[in-house]
Design a protein around this nucleic acid. Sequence first.
DNA 1: TCTGTCTTTTGATACGTTCTAAATTCGTAG
DNA 2: CTACGAATTTAGAACGTATCAAAAGACAGA
Lengths: 147, 147
Amino acid sequence: MTELLDRLRQREWRLTAQRRVVAQVLTGEHVHLTAEAVHGRARVLLPEISLATVYNTLNELVAMGEVREVQAGDGPRRYDPNVTSAHQHLQCVRCGALWDVEPAGADDLALPVDQQRGFRLLDIDIVFRGLCPTCDQEARAPAAHSA
Amino acid sequence: MTELLDRLRQREWRLTAQRRVVAQVLTGEHVHLTAEAVHGRARVLLPEISLATVYNTLNELVAMGEVREVQAGDGPRRYDPNVTSAHQHLQCVRCGALWDVEPAGADDLALPVDQQRGFRLLDIDIVFRGLCPTCDQEARAPAAHSA
DNA sequence: TCTGTCTTTTGATACGTTCTAAATTCGTAG
DNA sequence: CTACGAATTTAGAACGTATCAAAAGACAGA
């Protein structure tokens, strides 16, 4: 379980102060931050870092394959540093909360050749969608909803 | 294989001219249009229909469960009238093209209870991601890319 | 026809993300 | 140590998608 920062040090990639704090923020087991959240936490360590740089860095990390981009249904994209272990996601359709999961049977999932339409397959995204305990309760007892 | 329009007629839902053309446009086997595309085609049948109405109608159809909303990775959302048969998607990461597929092993996919974190599960989205034949070729022979 | 309700329209607005151009920083060679 | 070119960062403008608010319109029943 190499940390993102360690992996980056081994690359020929200029590790600037800004890139380092972004990588630091993106460290841990169940981290799925939005770009804004990354920016907020990065600013604690390096106050003058700009949002554009955060986006630049995140996009580069994704392009390098060091970070996974997860499109959380509705809201903003989230970034997941855990690319080393095969895992999928569990997501709340209401608040966007995201968790790593390792579903059973994922390895047996396959697309028959006659359905591949000539695509070169890259990966499979599996998202279990549902309501987290908090949102489930709130959905049952609608607070101050319109009409 | 009931068509969307037939299903809608059986609901207590005012079927206005605008809603009808949206439903008409969303008819077929492998239809995955963006809201803009729906608007464009709907305007052929009903020139004064507005984009907002298209969005309103699509959101209502999704809320009714008559149309499936598919978040195509990067670009705009796409809308899929094929909700009756269990199916998943194959998507080009470059151009966003989307196809229905029925992968093998999808029914055996399950999330162990100890990983459900108290969620109420609603559905599972499986997206095979890759490059369609056209984009695959273009990716190999990069045209006018920046340095 | 009048009335109330639901639907549609238009234009404005919000949001997340990318782009642009200028400024800064970095590595390297002299 | 200094100067140079290249890479990086910055702030703010621009973009595309989606939603909202207010007014206008359509429809059913009285």
